[in-house]
Each structure stands twice: as structure tokens, then as C-alpha cells.
Write a protein that binds this DNA or RNA. Structure first.
Length: 835
RNA sequence: GCCGGAGUGGCGGAACUGGCAGACGCGCCGGACUCAAAAUCCGGUGGGAGCAAUCCCUUGAGGGUUCGAGUCCCUCCUCCGGCACCA
């Protein structure tokens, strides 16, 4: 039989989406708010394929938080935008042969359609599109802010070069030696590029992690990326064989600087190794070794970066013929070059301590260099007389333990000291001759932001013969990206814009003379480093962000996004906001008050990817089951912050749940509250549910929140009567963040004023109702469960024990001996220990 | 190698500060409705022994702490993520 009142998702969802649009339900007056709550989610790259189920998973979880906070009385601002510049978009445009200026608008339109259909609470009056000149004008302005603050500089440096994308990449965009975008092995080139000096902020980026409220895994990833190492810089004077004298050696002139985390091992440094690219190589190389050295350097230069950085590879290297003085021992030690020493970490040179570094050990073994242990466990050298001339057998590898109970040996007057203390003492001692200082080294590099590509904001700089590097004046912004027919990248490392003469030929803003524009564009990650600042100020075209608006809405209250951006976007935007804070533009230095990563969605145990052919298209599911069911299903799959496994069959659960809930609520709407006595059991169940759902929503535990709602609906259905409105009204409110359309419809059918999100308030629970008058106490005998007894809440041990001993099964197990001990946890458990 | 996170039924996953392991859902089995099927509804469902009451086993493996361990400690294995010839 056809039920007129049946739940038809498609119709209901269309109805409420229309309602939200017509009534501007999801827009708010940003200047008239009491409790601003900026609910941010990572804006998508608008791909041609359309919205990915992973996008929707991310957005839905964030949207639920936004709707929940709104019901709790927050003034929630939930915007969305499009990260439409960048290599990703451009590569796709190249592939399909359509100009990005045509492609992007249609992709964005498609995304918007899909997002609207999915029932997200976006304020569509405030979107951001990074390719809009009204937006990137301010991206360029930000570049100039950094330039003026001395934090942007152009320098010749070895940079990562992707031969397929034909552009440089930031370190953060090189994953395991390969291009983040296309997977091609990345090489190195010396090019003149614009860098942002993010390394100046290393310590602050690290230190603030202590107090910001972020997912712990994301913080860890950032810590690893910044890679702070505590140690020392040491200088090894370059010596001519037979000439230099350790007793007089001092100062840093003509010395090789190394960084080490283990200055305590310097007495064991038996040779130095320079990176083949090191600038002092020519200086130390003797004429008889010159040919071999240059051959080796050429071979290294020709090598693939991925290949070079493989740990398992056998060590190679050559002797330069040069020697240096070990400033601690006074001995001459040979200087080698080897490609296992990297120019882009530390100083590009190392002191080699083969006894206590596995790499150095292998190198020394292969090339017959001396190995001298200088650190030993205290237990090993106990009772030995002269620690200054002691050795021990290393076996076939370096001794690396580095525990507090190790002492120095073979280390002159430092022998016998605890290793770390000794290290400090040695640094102090060498510092007297200006040959050492305590130092910190970072893995983090300056952020290379130049891209030799087309699809990005032109870097707003002009080069003039007489004035040099000249920033484009603010009033001349934006430097509009010109339409060029042929936007293909150039193998020679020049931007496509370098072929557009009408673009780059320009008068110098200072002297009016002939000048040339910078033809590189900036990295997409600069666009996304600040987009959230723009959302509250989209209507202002004379400023990037309005002061008052920014004070009201920022920093962001809640940010939710994928972990893949732990070290790219999230690090860059923290850096940028710190800079803007320091130059007095912003009043805060961390952009996101709370950040939570969402998990990864997989399908039937496998990663979702195009190559696997298991891509899930949200449109199909939304069409078939409705957005509400699909949203609920996605959130039910597993803990939101850990991800879930998408299985087609599973969607039946949430689907049935919504049908049953619909039936219960429409039945209540039909019968009303009249004539039914309040049922204390149902009431208690309701209050328990409110507590659980509230706590779960606070911690983004949507899967268990849904389970709690299911249990409550099951409890309602177990009653012989129809539920009352009082029993279902809070249920509908709690459901609404998950399934907003059906909730609106039921809210209206219950006689309430739409929109629910304006007229409803999140329910509260009465703690008194959570407490049962009687509780079931598990009874254990020797830790094994033997019965449960029902006693009054707060019953004493005597009462519980007596009740327990009335149970036949318990008596049987106690019979065997005396009760020696009783563990009673009030209202929880009793354990009789029988011996 | 270093740093994080995780291993629980046939499956996805629950379990607060150490206190009834397996919530909720999928699937499966049985029943009702139906000429039949789908849908829906009701009941069952970790493994083993037993007619049953009940008992034994069970949270990656092995030890330990405890009256009591999925949860804490030690050793190990596997998987996922980050970093990685990083000095």
C-alpha cells in the first residue's frame, strides 16, 4: 500500500534547498554578531572530474560541526572557495587542450552545483576564487609586504626541478624525491628564484606547536619537517701538509665549517668529507688529485637526486689531496668529497667519526681510513687505568647507543667525562680559539615561491637597468595575468610569460625607463596561505581584509582538513600570519585556533584512486539515496578523524534508520502530546542520548553519535505506543546537523517554524535523569564474572555483598574457600576474592 | 633507522580516569506477511562443551603488574602515516 506520508528524500531535499536559498538561511550579517564562530574547511581544487567522495567526506564532517555550533547559539560563518590556480589545473588544461580561463569557470560551476546538492551550509554570497584578479591582486600585495619586510629575496640557489612539469618545486612539493603532482623524479638546477625566508621563523613555528589546539599527528609532522637539531658548529683549519701547527691554529679564516650533533666525538674525527658541490672543494684539492675530483663532481652532478639519496647505495667518494687539522687532537686529517654528504643540509661538510656513525663507518671501511672509538659505555671501561689511550672492539658496525651512562675515552683531558657533558666542555674549550660554537640546525629550507609556469599570479616585480629590482607600486596592482594562446611550459626554465613581450616590456615604475617584468608566477601555496582572511571581507575591493571584520572573525575557530597538508599549506599559512602579525597588520600570530585532521576514506580496504578504478562518484549516491542518507552513511563509516571503509552494502543501515526515524516522528506529529503519560524510561533514554550525542559532536565522533541516535529510535519503536512530540523534538534537532533536509521537514511537520537552524536550540540534558535508582552490579569471584545483582544506587558494600551471596551461582563458587578480600567499587562492581 | 598512530566477531567498527569485551550497523540464520519474491516487521547471531542450569576459551604474539588488563609496563611481530645517507 502506498503511504502518502512516505519519506521521499529527493522531493524533501529540493524543497529545503530552495527554502535556504530564498530565505538566505546560510548567510549572516558579519557585522552584527555576538558569538562569531568561523567554521573553516580546506577549500577544494576544482578538478574537471568534479567533486570527489573524499572532498564530500571532509566537507560533511566540517559542516556538521558548523550546524552543531549554530544550534548551540554560535554565529557561524561557513564559507567555501576554490583553489583554482596552480600546476594541477594547468596540467589538466594542457592535457585536454582547453585554455584554463575557459576550463576553470565551468569546473567551479560544477562544484558549486554538487556542493549545493549535498546540503552544505555554505554562505554562497562570500566565495573566493584565487584566479579572480580581485583576489590575486592581494596575493601580489602580500608578496610585496614580505618583500618590504626583507623576507622575500631573489637568489641563485640549487632548486628542485621537475622535468615533466618544467618548473621548480618547493621542498615541500617533493615527495620521496618525486614531484608531488606528476610523480616524475626531481632533479636539481642552479636557478635564480624568489624565496620567502620561512627559516627565520623556524623556532617560532616549532615553539607555538606547544600551545595551539591541533591534531597531535599534524603537529608531529610539522616538528619532523622543521627538523630542529641541537649541536655545534666546528671549524677545521685547512692545512698544507706538514706546515700547519695545531697549537697555533685558531680562527675561522681558511677553515672548513661543519655542523654536528655530537661534538663530544670530535677526538674520533679522523677525516672530513665535503659535499661534491661544496665551494671550498677547488681550494683544498691538490693538483695531482684535480682530475679525479672533477670527474667525480661531474658524475654527481649528472646523477638523479632520488638515486643519490638512496640509503642502501654503497658509499662512493674521492680524496682531494687536501688536509685539515682536527682542532681537538691537533692531527692532520684528510679531506674527502663524497655524495653522501648533501649540500643542502648543515654546512655541506661533515667531520667524519667512523667509530660512532654508521655512514662514516662504512665509508672508512671501504676506503681504509682510521677508526677510533672515543665514546664507551661506563660499564665497559670500568677498572681500566688510562682512559686516554683505550680502545674497544666495535665489531662490524659503529657504536651508536648514545645513552647517559657513556663516557669519553681517547679524548685527551676530557677522557672520563660523561659524554654529553664532555661535548659541552669541548665546545667551550675550542671556542677559546674561535673554532666552535653551540648551534642549532634545521631541516627546514626557505620557501621557494617562483614557478616557471603560466597559471598563477605574476610576481609583482620589475627589473630596471638603472633602478634594479623594483616592486610594482600598490596602486598598479593587480599585475593581470595576460591571456596567452600558448601557455605551455618551456624546457629552458623560463616562464611562458617570457614569450609575451607585451606583458614583460614595461616602463620602470621609478625612473620611467625601459624595464622588464618578472615573468615567473607565484606558487599556488601562496594563494592558499591567506584565503581564509579574505572570506569575511569579500565585498571590499580596496583592501585585502577589513580590520574590524578580521578582528571579529579571526583567528579561525575551527579548521578541518586533510593531513596531506600538514607540512605544505598549514605550515605556510602559519608562517604568513606570523609575518603579518610582526609587521603590524594582524593582531594574532596563529591562524587557526583549532585544527582537526579528518581521516582518509578507503573503499573495501583499498585506497581510492583513478588508477585502481574504484572511484566513488558522490552524485550517483546522492541521486539514489539522497544527500541526508549519504551524509549520514559517510559519517557512520568510522571515526571521522581516522577515516573509514566505504562499502556499498553498508548504506542500507543509515537508510533504514532515517526511514524509521521518519515514521516515529510523523506518528508523533499526528498524535501530538495529548493523553500520553510521560514515560520515565523513554525520558531517561532521551537524556542519556542527549549527553552522548553532545559529547560526541564536541569531539567529532560522529559515528558513535549516530549509533546513539539509532539506539534512541530503537527504544522509541520498542514502546507499544506512538512517541510524543516531547520525545522526538530533541531527536530531530540532534539529527539536523547530520541530515539537515529531513530534519527541516520533520521540524515543520511538528508545527515548528522553519528554519530549524534559526528557531531550534540544542537540547540540554538533566543530569539527575541520567542516574538510575537501581543499578546492575556485576559480581566477580576471583575476577571472573559469576552473576549480576540489582541493588539500589549507592548501595554499601555490605548490601551488595549480601545480595551477591544470595545468588546460587555465586555461592557455589565461593563455597570452595573463605572470602579473603572483597573489592567493591560502588555502583560498578564487586569482586569476592576466595582462597 | 628515527618519530607518530593502529592491530578487537564473517565485515565496518564500540568500550569513560584499569571494572559486565563485542554498543551501533552490515551480512548471515530462523520466523511473520505474500501465490511467490522484494520491501517491511519480529527473533537469533564471537568460538567451543552441555538437554539445561552452567562452564571453558577469546581483543596481533609472548612475558609482567593487579583482586581485576582490549586499556598500564617490558620484549617481539604486522600494517598505516611522517621524516630520512639530516651529519
Amino acid at each position: 500500500m502506498q503511504n502518502d506520508d512516505a519519506y521521499v528524500a529527493g522531493e524533501i531535499e529540493a524543497k529545503w534547498q530552495r527554502f535556504w536559498n530564498e530565505n538566505a538561511t546560510n548567510s549572516l550579517d558579519l557585522d552584527r554578531v555576538e558569538r562569531p564562530y568561523f567554521n573553516l574547511m580546506m577549500y577544494p581544487y576544482p578538478s574537471a572530474e568534479g567533486l570527489h567522495v573524499g572532498n564530500l567526506y571532509a566537507f560533511t564532517g566540517a559542516d556538521i560541526n558548523g550546524r552543531y555550533q549554530r544550534l548551540r547559539g554560535e554565529d557561524v560563518f561557513e564559507p567555501i572557495g576554490f583553489d583554482a590556480f596552480g600546476i594541477h589545473s594547468e596540467n589538466h588544461a594542457l592535457k585536454v587542450g582547453v585554455h584554463p580561463t575557459e576550463l576553470i569557470p565551468s569546473n567551479i560551476a560544477n562544484f558549486e552545483r554538487q556542493l549545493r546538492r549535498a546540503g552544505l551550509m555554505y554562505d554562497w554570497t562570500r566565495t573566493v576564487d584565487t584566479t579572480d584578479p580581485a583576489y590575486y591582486r592581494w596575493t601580489q600585495w602580500l608578496f610585496l609586504q614580505l618583500y618590504r619586510a626583507g623576507l622575500a629575496e631573489k637568489k641563485e640557489a640549487p632548486v628542485n626541478w621537475c622535468p615533466s612539469c618544467k618548473t621548480v618545486l618547493a621542498n615541500e612539493q617533493v615527495i620521496a624525491g618525486r614531484c608531488e603532482r606528476c610523480g616524475t623524479a626531481v632533479g636539481q638546477r642552479m636557478l635564480s628564484q624568489w624565496f620567502f625566508k620561512i627559516t627565520k621563523y623556524s623556532d617560532r613555528l616549532l615553539d607555538n606547536l606547544e600551545w595551539i589546539d591541533w591534531s597531535e599527528t599534524t603537529k608531529t609532522a610539522q616538528r619532523n619537517w622543521i627538523g630542529r637539531s641541537q649541536g655545534a658548529r666546528l671549524w677545521f683549519p685547512i692545512g698544507k701538509p706538514g706546515v700547519a701547527d695545531s697549537s697555533t691554529a685558531s680562527g675561522r679564516e681558511r677553515a672548513i665549517e661543519v655542523f654536528t650533533t655530537r661534538p663530544d666525538t670530535i677526538f674520533g674525527a679522523t677525516f672530513l668529507v665535503l659535499s661534491p658541490e661544496h665551494p671550498l672543494v677547488d681550494q683544498v684539492t691538490t693538483s695531482d688529485r684535480a682530475e679525479e675530483v672533477s670527474t667525480y663532481r661531474a658524475a654527481t652532478a649528472a646523477q638523479d637526486l632520488t638515486e643519490r639519496r638512496k640509503v642502501e647505495r654503497a658509499k662512493t667518494g674521492v680524496f682531494t689531496g687536501g688536509v685539515a687539522l682536527n682542532p681537538a687532537t691537533g692531527q692532520q686529517i684528510p679531506i674527502w668529497i663524497a655524495d653522501y654528504v648533501l649540500m643542502d643540509y648543515g654546512t655541506g661538510a661533515i667531520m667524519s667519526v667512523p667509530a660512532h656513525d654508521q655512514r662514516d663507518y662504512e665509508f672508512a671501511t671501504d676506503f681504509g681510513l682510521p677508526i677510533m672509538p672515543v665514546v664507551a659505555p661506563a660499564s665497559l671501561v670500568e677498572g681500566e687505568g688510562d682512559l686516554t689511550a683505550l680502545s674497544f672492539d666495535l665489531g662490524s658496525e659503529a657504536f651508536l647507543e648514545h645513552t647517559p651512562d657513556e663516557i669519553l675515552i681517547n679524548s685527551g683531558r676530557f677522557s672520563g667525562m660523561q659524554a654529553d657533558d664532555g661535548g659541552q666542555a669541548i665546545v667551550g674549550w675550542l671556542a677559546e680559539r674561535d673554532l666552535a660554537e653551540a648551534a642549532v640546525n634545521y631541516r627546514l629550507h626557505d620557501w621557494c615561491i617562483s614557478r616557471q609556469r603560466y597559471w598563477g599570479p605574476p610576481i609583482p616585480i620589475v627589473y630596471c637597468e638603472s633602478c634594479g629590482t623594483v616592486p610594482v607600486p600598490d596602486e598598479d596592482l593587480p599585475v593581470v595575468l595576460p591571456y596567452v594562446e600558448d601557455f605551455r611550459p618551456d624546457i629552458g626554465g623560463v616562464s611562458p610569460l617570457a614569450r609575451a613581450e607585451e606583458f614583460y616590456r614595461v616602463d620602470c615604475p621609478e625612473c620611467g625607463g625601459e624595464a622588464r617584468r618578472e615573468t615567473d608566477v607565484s606558487d599556488t601555496f601562496l594563494d592558499s596561505a591567506w584565503y581564509f582572511l579574505r572570506y569575511p571581507s569579500t565585498e571590499f575591493d580596496d583592501r585585502p581584509f577589513d580590520d574590524a571584520r578580521t578582528r571579529t572573525w579571526l583567528p579561525v575557530a575551527s579548521y578541518i582538513g586533510g593531513e596531506e597538508h600538514s607540512v605544505l599549506h598549514l605550515l605556510y599559512s602559519r608562517f604568513l600570519i606570523m609575518v603579518l602579525h610582526d609587521i603590524g597588520i594582524l593582531g594574532f600570530e596563529e591562524p587557526y585556533k583549532r585544527f582537526r585532521k579528518h581521516g582518509l576514506l578507503i573503499k573495501e580496504g583499498a585506497k581510492i584512486s583513478k588508477s585502481r578504478g574504484n572511484v566513488v562518484l558522490p552524485d550517483d549516491y546522492v541521486e539514489r539515496y539522497g544527500a541526508d542518507t549519504f551524509r549520514t552513511y559517510l559519517m557512520f563509516l568510522g571515526p571521522y578523524q581516522e577515516g573509514g571503509d566505504f562499502r556499498d552494502r553498508g548504506i542500507a543501515g543509515p537508510e533504514r534508520f532515517l526511514y524509521r526515524l521518519w515514521d516515529s516522528v510523523t506518528a508523533a506529529a499526528a498524535s501530538g502530546d495529548g493523553g500520553v503519560e510521560p514515560d520515565t524510561d523513554v525520558e531517561k533514554a532521551l537524556h542519556r542520548t542527549i549527553k552522548r550525542v553532545t559529547e560526541d559532536f564536541d569531539s567529532l565522533a560522529y559515528n558513535t553519535a549516530i549509533a546513539a541516535l539509532m539506539e534512541y529510535v530503537n527504544a522509541l519503536r520498542a514502546e507499544a505506543r506512538s512517541p510524543t512530540l516531547a520525545e522526538v523534538r530533541p531527536l530531530v534537532i540532534m539529527l539536523s546537523p547530520l541530515a539537515p533536509h529531513i530534519a527541516e521537514e520533520l521540524w515543520e511537520r511538528m508545527g515548528e517554524e522553519p528554519s530549524l537552524f534559526d528557531t531550534a536550540r540544542w537540547p540540554s540534558y538533566d543530569p539527575a535523569l541520567l542516574e538510575e535508582a537501581e543499578v546492575d552490579i556485576p559480581v566477580q569471584v576471583n575476577g571472573k564474572l559469576r552473576a549480576t545483582v540489582r541493588v539500589g544506587r549507592g548501595a554499601s558494600q555490605e548490601v551488595v555483598q549480601e545480595a551477591a551471596l544470595r545468588d546460587e551461582n555465586v555461592r557455589r563458587h565461593v563455597e570452595s574457600g573463605d572470602i579473603r578480600k572483597v573489592i567493591h567499587v560502588p555502583d560498578r562492581l564487586i569482586n569476592l576474592v576466595v582462597g
